[in-house]
């Protein structure tokens, strides 16, 4: 069966079917996850596998989940006003776990003045209220590829 073995690996060179996996979650203490749910659905409709974690996630929970689920991106909806803490903390934990290549983006009620600071900390993109869903989907399509 020596030849069969070689053949097996040749047959196995068929194209890989990688899918984009994105964690969508809602950290913080407020109880509205409508925005996060809308994004989850829009991304699903764009062919993404969305791991939806629901409300009240701490940065530690988010990053642990991202590790177990091996996601390519994390999208967070933050309405609580704690974005200046939550985003950098998630980024820091990602780097600690050598997951710095995971794309972190988000949206919510975030003052324009805070956005440059967040981008500098490593957040890839921040969407402000009123952003069309389609814009977020286009961003994800263009920016987030399944890992190698």
């Amino acid at each position: 069966m020596a030849t069969a073995k070689g053949k097996g690996s040749a047959a196995a060179t068929k194209r890989a079917a990688r899918k984009v996996r994105i964690l969508v979650g809602k950290p913080g203490l407020d109880g509205h996850d409508r925005g996060a749910k809308i994004i989850a659905r829009a991304l699903r409709d764009a062919g993404v596998e969305v791991i939806y974690t629901g409300l009240h996630q701490t940065p530690e929970m988010i990053v642990n989940t991202a590790a177990q689920e091996d996601v390519d991106g994390i999208g967070l909806s933050i309405l609580s006003g704690a974005h200046n803490y939550l985003f950098p903390k998630v980024m820091e934990l990602l780097r600690e776990k050598k997951m710095g290549d995971v794309v972190l983006f988000g949206g919510g009620i975030i003052p324009d003045d805070d956005i440059p600071k967040l981008l500098k900390k490593g957040v890839d993109r921040v969407f402000t209220p009123g952003t069309r869903i389609q814009e977020i989907v286009e961003y994800v399509n263009a920016r987030i590829q399944p890992r190698k």
């Binding site: 699903r44 409709d45 764009a46 791991i51 974690t53 996630q57 530690e60 929970m61 989940t65």
Partner: peptide, 18 residues
Amino acid sequence: YTGGAILGDRIRMQQHAL
């Protein structure tokens, strides 16, 4: 239709996330 999915089972299990 889209090949996408919403995997939402974790919502109920996040108490074990840490």
